[in-house]
Write a protein that binds this DNA or RNA. Structure first.
Length: 606
RNA sequence: GCCCUCGUAGCUCAGGGGAUAGAGCAACUGCCUCCUAAGCAGUAGGUCGCAGGUUCGAAUCCUGCCGAGGGCGCCA
């Protein structure tokens, strides 16, 4: 483990605890020691970024809560702490304010030393955690349904969480969890049988090779609503679909063969959509993946006595004392022996825990399914499938709404395909390039690539900058303006830095050691750069990528202020210029990382 | 009916028990002979839904009410 340099008198003791390499942690450590020397709890020494930049860069509020237990005045404790910490070259001042706040300002020299370490660290001061075996379940497309605007959130929030989890050092898998094993499969089978009864899939006695049928996702997408509507109003149709589903799950050869083709056709389209979003999965599994373990799982549950029979169905009782709402039994298998969403979800927990050795399962799924996940998680606990040591979390998110405040729809009232949504933002970006007369001289291919990256950035940042749990309004005009707090703003900031570094290189200039900051915008940029570790930690703790989005925006803003004030390439002091080049390189590194964690790519120029 | 989520500036949204609640857009005023103006500086804009409670301290935690959205066994 690398122990950071530059903290001077900080004693490391012989404690086995890892000392995270972050400025805030270092400061908290210093103040924690002071509290301990004063006979108080060292956790009181937590240092946070100041709420009042006019009064200090950082603050420590530990004296306030300490006052009560210690039976002393908060200001007196604060003074005591300040006395114990002071007297070296790290702090420009430590001052008391209000009821007992300690305001902290670092010396520019100390700040530069600290940030030099960060600048030399490929991880920018972010320590790797003790790895957890994590699985993120996100995306969740279905057979026969092209992905639509509603899948956007599941996909990019999940993708971002996976990236963040992995960056922090967790052993992380992403699983697309394809919806390919439920009743909709039976419906599609009877619909195709209805249209083409002559096909051998439906002949139970057929023994030859099954033909490849010519069917597209578009075809399936037309069929599904038709048959679904018929089943809703016609009990006989619904019964046929139910039986077909059951027989498929029981292994009827013709149905399996047909299923495979429907699966593959749908999956190919989804892969294309995910690819255009720049999203990849480690596992392209689905409900059908766990089919073979469902039977044994149910047998085991019956033997262990956790399930009971309810009107012919297999259920687990999951209500608990203190429940605030009715908690109906969890259905493991239908009365006809068929399986449903609940069944595969439970078996999938088992697979992820037993076969994949996961210890934290994150389900990035629409908030409307929170009741379902509460049931699945309880059933998994009650049945012992997921011991308490395994974390089960529903990472719920709200809907993307249109201007009417309802889930986003096209003008005609239909759902907006994800593909079309991507085209819309790409086109908007392309228009913007033309309007601003930018990139006109770039090759067509590069121009198109810039438009693609900028459009996607607008889309992703616009989504991820909202807290996942809240519904948000998708306003294309606002997104297409690419001004202010948008993905393109962040890309633009990064691109300007790249341009500086390119120009510097051409001029034979190279980055050098950081010297103490001389202007406020430079100092602020350094201070912002130091926050990265806590931001990433907190983002993952809360499973809320908007914290990364927010921080990335603030960081870019700090850089742009510095950029306006300090002309790097015109700077006449060589040491200062080299230091500034180092600073902007560090800024680019962090910005690039943050954008990558949001799934946003930065073009070389734009 | 019960449960969950949300309610913050004109609009869209951030906000970690701490001091004077922030950003973007829209409005108004400035800044391109200078590293990319998709930028920067500034002005104006608020009973943080309402009422209690916990706390030295609440937009933040608890309770109730109001409003919006969503959910509540063989669909996913």
């Amino acid at each position: 483990m690398v122990r950071r340099q530059g903290i001077g008198s900080l004693s490391c003791k012989k404690s086995q605890q890892r000392q995270p390499m972050s400025l805030l942690n270092d400061l908290s450590h210093i103040f924690g020691e002071a509290f301990e020397q004063a006979g108080l709890d060292r956790t009181l020494g937590t240092v946070v970024v100041s709420q009042r930049p006019d009064l200090g860069q950082f603050q420590c509020n530990g004296a306030l809560p300490a006052a009560k237990t210690a039976g002393r005045l908060p200001r007196e404790i604060a003074q005591d702490i300040v006395n114990r910490v002071q007297a070296d070259d790290r702090f420009a001042f430590l001052s008391l304010a209000g009821p007992g706040f300690i305001n902290i300002r670092l010396t520019d020299g100390f700040l530069a030393r600290e940030m030099q370490v960060v600048a030399d660290d490929p991880r920018y001061g972010v320590s790797e955690v003790r790895p957890l075996r994590v699985l993120v379940d996100y995306g969740g497309p279905n057979v026969a349904k092209e992905m639509h605007a509603g899948h956007l959130r599941a996909t990019i929030i999940g993708d971002s969480l996976k990236r963040i989890s992995r960056y922090l050092g967790h052993d992380t898998l992403g699983d697309v969890h394809f919806g390919d094993w439920g009743t909709q499969m039976g419906m599609l089978i009877i619909e195709i049988a209805h249209r083409h009864p002559e096909l051998p899939f439906f002949d139970p006695d057929y023994e030859g090779e099954y033909p490849m049928i010519d069917i597209t996702l578009d075809d399936l997408e037309t069929m599904y609503p038709l048959v679904s509507a018929r089943c809703a109003e016609n009990l006989e149709e619904a019964e046929r679909a139910r039986i077909a589903t059951f027989e498929l799950q029981q292994g009827r050869a013709g149905y399996r063969a047909l299923w495979q083709q429907l699966h593959d056709t749908s999956m190919a389209a989804h892969r294309r959509d995910f690819a255009s979003l720049g999203v990849e999965f480690d596992l392209w599994d689905g409900e059908s993946t766990v089919h073979n373990r469902i039977g044994p799982m149910i047998q085991r549950l019956i033997r262990s006595g956790v399930v009971t029979d309810s009107e012919g169905a297999v259920v687990i009782t999951i209500d608990q004392p203190g429940d605030k709402t009715d908690m109906p039994p969890f259905l493991v298998a239908k009365s006809d022996g068929g399986y449903l969403y609940s069944t595969t979800d439970l078996a999938t927990v088992e697979q992820r825990v037993d076969d994949l050795s996961r210890r934290l399962l994150l389900y990035v799924v629409d908030a409307r399914q929170s009741f379902h996940f509460e049931q699945v998680f309880r059933a998994a606990r009650r049945s012992g499938i997921a011991p308490e040591s395994v974390g089960l979390e529903h990472i719920k998110f709200g809907t993307m709404n249109g201007p009417d405040g309802k889930p986003f729809q096209t003008r005609k009232g239909g759902v907006l395909k994800l593909r079309d949504l991507i085209s819309m933002v790409t086109e908007a970006a392309d228009n913007r390039l033309s309007e601003a007369d930018i990139a006109q001289e770039y090759p067509d291919a590069e121009r198109a690539e810039i438009a693609r990256k900028v459009g996607l950035a607008a889309l992703k940042f616009g989504d991820l900058s909202n807290h996942r749990a809240s519904n948000y309004l998708f306003d294309l005009d606002r997104f297409a303006s690419f001004e202010g707090k948008t993905g393109p703003y962040l890309q633009y900031s990064a691109v300007r830095i790249k341009s500086i570094l390119r120009n510097a290189e051409e001029a034979g200039l190279s980055p050098g050691p950081l010297v103490p900051p001389s202007v406020e915008t430079e100092r602020n940029l350094l201070l912002y750069l130091a926050r990265l570790p806590e931001v990433l930690e907190r983002t993952f703790e809360l499973r809320a990528p908007n914290h990364v989005a927010e921080y990335a925006y603030d960081l870019a803003t700090q850089f742009n202020r510095f950029y306006e004030e300090c002309h790097i390439l015109r700077e006449t002091d060589p040491a200062r210029q080299a230091s500034w080049l180092k600073l902007v390189a560090l800024t680019l590194g962090e910005l690039d990382l943050l954008l990558d964690l949001l799934g946003i790519e930065v073009p070389e120029r734009m």
